[in-house]
Design a protein around this nucleic acid. Structure first.
Lengths: 152, 152
DNA sequence: TAGACTGGTTGCAATCTGCAACCTGCTTGG
DNA sequence: CCAAGCAGGTTGCAGATTGCAACCAGTCTA
């Protein structure tokens, strides 16, 4: 399976995140989970993915702690896949992908779906990288530094 | 190759974005581009990816308009792969992945890299989904609606 | 209690990936 | 200006991954 050998892990956090949700299906599974999909068969129906692939992905996502398996909320003996805190924190990633897709991968006339604030019905704000003081930063306004925590 | 047949495109913007950068390498190529990598051999060295795969990915990314091919900035006859506006707008996606990776995919003691504001040296603000009025929104605070632009 | 549904597993064919070898057009040292 | 080497690929092939279909064991329900 996705054998991202953890013995020589990447130092880059982007690469590590990509190991978890960087394949063809995992991200879409998480997206569906944000849309309150929880059951194996619901994921399969929504995504149209092969059952063996879905089973493998869900298993991997449970192993890394993005999902947890819970007893079904309808009282039956079946189980549900529910996002953990770690999984719910993927929300900004999914939304930034959504916003980019909306802007650049749709023709102007195409039907699409947009994300709106429950409270106001307004579309959510476009996500941006911000400085500590709240200014929007572009790629050229930032740089990476290496940090070695030495807090014994 | 990545045959995401455009005859039955997804309506979901997340899926459309995922078609572009949802594979094992494309996202990391873009990440490197934000780190000022431009040449084929530099990408190859940085990523350790097979040359045929890199060539295929760069070609696809040029075709969808994320990169453009420019003459080399050093005056040689070689070319460079430079992010377009569309490509630069992937920045929030890469940063949100980075921040999630930093928080959840590193042990506390591990060396990692973090993104800081050039101007202040401070780490950039954690990205969040915000309402039009600036409040942070969680997954439960939003919902999707379908929009069919009917502007003639 | 039979039949359908849930949540998978297994086998196999087709596709995709990555390695290595090769190739062509620049570029540079002598 | 010529040979050697580098940049930027392409091609062939073996192995890994994907997806389809068939099958199967529990669970539910009429």
């Amino acid at each position: 399976m996705l054998d991202h050998d953890s013995s020589h892990r990447h130092e880059c956090p982007v690469a590590r995140a990509s190991e978890v949700i960087g394949d063809r299906w995992s991200l879409l599974i998480v997206r569906d989970a944000f849309d309150d999909i929880r059951r194996f068969s619901e994921f399969q129906k929504s995504l149209g993915v092969a059952k063996n692939i879905l089973a493998a992905r869900l298993k991997a996502l449970v192993e890394v702690g993005v999902f947890e398996i819970c007893p079904a909320s309808d009282g039956s003996a079946y189980k549900e896949y529910v996002l953990t805190e770690k999984g719910r924190e993927l929300f900004p990633i999914v939304v930034s992908l959504r916003q980019w897709g909306e802007r650049f991968q749709f023709a102007p006339h195409e039907t699409r779906s947009v994300l709106v604030d429950n409270a106001t019905g307004q579309p959510v704000m476009r996500m941006a990288v911000q400085s500590a003081s709240g200014e929007t930063l572009g790629p050229a306004d930032c740089h990476r530094i290496r940090v070695t925590p030495d807090d014994v």
